[in-house]
Design a protein around this nucleic acid. Structure first.
Lengths: 104, 104
DNA sequence: TCCATTGTTCGAATATAATGGAACTATGGA
DNA sequence: TCCATAGTTCCATTATATTCGAACAATGGA
């Protein structure tokens, strides 16, 4: 099974997380992953945008350390790296998710 | 005394806060305002950059709703809109500040 | 009134990001 | 082996931000 490179949690910068979540599309992906509480394919998370655009956002979410992607056949299973990020930056992701749900 | 326009707290968007804090210079301004716990002039918050660059960052911080600026003579007194933001988005700013102090 | 101080605005150059079509890759099933 | 599926990568276009020098505006003191 192929593997995608993800940053180690101690390489995850706070400003990268901020930047990733500053985009409404990416924030929505993160919120939906959190609400689902399970791995989801890119297709499931489709937001009516071209594949290449979505792929770009997933790539950025991965490089920011927010999303982990495991390849399973032709599908890419995405999950939020919630526990790791909470441990490193307590309350940050949690409070953002809480604030987001009130809006979205 | 002249006055600068600030957004009302209910106009403050979470993604704008995220975006504003995604820049290291702006995050540092916010952290220093929080640590100081008092109004500070732009000059005090100087980060070895040209005035026009700093002014640009302050303008963005104001429009994001993070910073309030009151004009006092020739000086501009800046403060963090901490309580208002905490009330609207509980824990967001607080956890980011906590996470930032560990880095900066 | 003149001038120094503080910060903003303007404008142009540069850098970075978003967008989306087209081609490509990997996988698995017929 | 052929084909459909799921995403990625490539590339060019467009949009948006950053940077900073220079000119400007407001204030207060000499």
């Amino acid at each position: 099974m192929r593997q995608i490179k993800h940053p180690n949690i101690d390489q995850v910068e706070l400003t990268d997380i901020m930047y990733a979540l500053a985009d409404p599309t990416r924030l929505e992906i993160v919120v939906r992953l959190a609400q689902a509480g399970r791995k989801m394919t890119c297709g499931e998370l489709d937001l009516n945008r071209p594949k290449s655009s979505m792929s770009h956002h997933f790539k950025l979410l991965r490089s920011a350390g927010l999303v982990e992607t495991l390849i399973d056949g032709t599908e890419h299973m995405n999950s939020l790296r919630f526990e790791e990020i909470e441990k490193k930056y307590p309350g940050v992701l949690q409070s953002i998710l809480k604030a987001s749900k009130a809006i979205i």
